[in-house]
Amino acid sequence: MSYAYLFKYIIIGDTGVGKSCLLLQFTDKRFQPVHDLTIGVEFGARMITIDNKPIKLQIWDTAGQESFRSITRSYYRGAAGALLVYDITRRETFNHLASWLEDARQHANANMTIMLIGNKCDLAHRRAVSTEEGEQFAKEHGLIFMEASAKTAQNVEEAFIKTAATIYKKIQDGVFDVSNESYGIKVGYGGIPGPSGGRDGPSASAGGCCS
């Protein structure tokens, strides 16, 4: 179970955009076409490798419904990374991004890495938001952007890992005071990749996705 760093993620975005499915695809490598509405917050975890260092991701998948906002806001501050998800087939979920960002800026720490994900890119024929629009929005607000599909697993790994790589880079650059855990980053016991637990996911190298 040893890891070099532990990163806390949150997944936010409108209800029904596929947040829980992204998490399930990332942690369990499966897709559930019908997913129960998330109540409050659900938790998932996986180990990844970046720059040959084992990194533990703790991911909190939040409920998108408005009624849970007061609860989900409690998770912003302590998170190092956020996946902000919209549904490319539903324009309104894209339109709401600004308010989500505002929420994040208000409650999260300023150095939180935010990854914008246009989910359901397998449904190209029903596309309502173009890739360019997504890119444009990300650029304007300083986010990383990716289109992904929880169903086909396209870009799911990459999204989580690229976020982690960005955070890792920020650590290397000295942006964070890693001794302060309120940034959602924890330094592990061993920086060396040791014998890790059986449930740990496959590794991905930093070079592959962080260039």
Partner: peptide, 15 residues
């Protein structure tokens, strides 16, 4: 209070 329990854990209660 399940939600509080989760937040508390998120804040690193176990450690």
């Amino acid at each position: 209070a399940e939600e509080i329990q989760k937040i508390v854990v998120f804040e690193g209660a176990f450690e």
